[in-house]
Amino acid sequence: MSIATPKHIDHPTVLYMNGVSVSFDGFKALNSLSLFIEPGEMRAIIGPNGAGKTTMMDVITGKTRPDSGTILFNDKEDLTRYDEAQVANMGVGRKFQKPSVIESLTVFENIEMSLKGGRSVWQALVHKLTPARQEKIDEILDLIDLKDRQHEEAGSLSHGQKQWLEIGMLLGQEPELLLIDEPAAGMTDEETMKTAELFKRLAKKHSLMVVEHDMDFIEALDCKVTVLHEGRVLAEGSLETVKANQEVIEVYLGR
């Protein structure tokens, strides 16, 4: 079975990746990868270890330059021309595979730092906590269930709570597109399901790309699934269809 990789597609996309390749010392981590995400869409990405899922996020967010290929944001910005901070400020938020919060700042300060705007040195120096910002922070703290720990250092949180805090920081950025790498790792089943619920709610206002190994979580997301393997798209479609795909079973599910 082969996947259609159109050069031009006729509907608007929030993320357009076409023929993207990256190699590390000759090893092709991404091999002419093509993938399109529609505005407001939620997309799950699965695939075996080393498939290139994290690398894909690296090239989208300006961390790694692709050797070839096109990456467009909202069908106009060429993301390969910008660095991490610029891509972030355009409206692409990212959650890392390894929870990455600022451990020696408090939960509150972590969220405060993430709030959209005020990125220049001068703005940061004269920054004030306005009632509007306070309200926004409270809202996020409620959402991620960390209100009663807001004044504790982020380093003291459990693994799952750090994941939530990082998701909260993503929300603070108010990005259009959220790239989320293995959010459920280290979470209890209950937390995992709550996370899936949260993402489904977010998908209405934002576009999400979620990488996860936890199949229950993917199922709960109830969205289109893309299977990556060896830097390429192996299959794409509903969870049922990709689960039934012989190749997918061989390289991923059958393990």
Binding site: T61, K63, D83, E84, A85, A88, N89, G93, R94, F96, S100, V101, I102, E103, S104, L105, E109, E112, M113, S114, G118, R119, S120, V121, A124, L125, V126, H127, M169, Q173
Partner: peptide, 26 residues
């Protein structure tokens, strides 16, 4: 100031600060 907290963020996790949209070099 918030600038100080960005500095701490850079100290603890430079890439996190970048992906939050802060121009670390400045």
């Amino acid at each position: 100031s918030k600038l100080g907290r960005v500095l701490v963020a850079i100290r603890d996790s430079e890439s996190r600060a970048r992906f939050l949209g802060y121009r670390v070099e400045w």
